[in-house]
Design a protein around this nucleic acid. Structure first.
Lengths: 123, 123, 123, 123
DNA sequence: GTGGTCTAGACCACT
DNA sequence: GTGGTCTAGACCACA
């Protein structure tokens, strides 16, 4: 599987974001090893250094820990930490921006909820 | 006042976005002249070339027109055009992404949108 | 002038340390621009990316700031901040280690002060 | 007890240093056997190969000797040898570096060493 | 096996 | 001019 990279953001950054998403979703659990730099590089057809940079970012943010000679592992408590920090970011930055945008575009909130109801009934 | 530039996006792009916002809000009306490149550069403490680049982007998108010797002006119909294109962008790109994010963070979209509907009916 | 790199530490780290030393000594003052990545790379005969990595570290530590399109600059207050943090590091980590080492090696503190007196008279 | 490894230095190197410290302090005496590789590995929760590498370093430096079938032993004269070499290292490398650091941080060496001299005379 | 560093060189984005 | 990103490939250190 080849991936669709967003041209406007560095690959390493997108890789970082995807990993965070996977931790939040639970498809990458705490204490799980991250796929090795070489493996990811081969799969995604990118340079190992690019992967390495993404992983380093995660280490710097305290989400992932390096065990020397063994690889990278999701830190214990990482999911909880991410939930808190990402929710705060959403609340203080993303949602206000969305609200302003909806106001500017005069978008009706009801129209946004319609498609959700369908999903709800499908559950 | 010095402005808060987002470090992650080009200044010219942010300048461009702000102008679009002002047109949508109406604080910059159709046929209004845009403030001159020099003036903006001086006010925001940025390079005139950066301002020019932002203005050129607006020209390229057909939102603004250059009248030789007079300056830049908001095009007639620009607001309507922007409303349509920005709404489409919101519907197809921004909102789905926000929904996915809310799902990951276990935030209920309805709870955030309900209060807005009431306001809308009060109008 | 070619530089003597310590083989045991990454070049980018040594470059980072040297810059900090220069700021502490005052040979690189606050608000001064750091020499450009390309210039340093050419002078020291190393890869620009290596220099870049060193500069990025300084940015991450809040000692240096990037002005887009202009280059890197020593932050206002950087020297004071460094004095505080480095003194604390010396007090809590380096000096206790030195003391333990002297004790183990049964080194007489007086013998360490002798050469200093000479310097003092030279002043 | 899990040990606090310094992230910046190889574990085998830190293990090596600790052993040298123990010999200097006397808690590991000449002709004493070093704890077995397995035992150390189990205690410190590290890879036996890492322990082996540390021990090999000590053999290479002539501080420890391997007796086939019996294990590793501190060499006769090791403590004296270490005192000489470590003192020389301290005098020529470590102390000058510390002095330069103190100068940069505007710390007076005498003020740190004076209290020690008194203790020394009390002995 | 793991990740880290460095090189040489290309290309891009920003000001 | 400035820094940032990515590639391809080599070499090293660690466990």
């Amino acid at each position: 599987m080849t991936h669709n990279w967003n041209e406007n953001q560095p690959i390493y950054w997108q890789l970082c974001e995807r990993t965070i998403e996977r931790i939040l979703e639970g498809s990458l659990d705490e204490a799980d090893p991250l796929p090795s730099v070489r493996q990811v590089a081969a799969e995604l057809q990118i340079n190992p250094i690019t992967v390495s940079k993404a992983y380093q970012l995660l280490v710097d943010e305290g989400i992932v820990e390096k065990r020397r000679g063994l690889g990278m592992f999701v830190k214990t408590g990482a999911r909880k930490q991410l939930l808190l920090s990402e929710r705060e970011k959403f609340r203080s930055q993303i949602w206000p921006d969305i609200l302003a945008r909806m106001q500017r575009l005069d978008i009706d909130p009801a129209s946004l909820l319609e498609p959700l109801k369908k999903n709800a009934t499908n559950k």
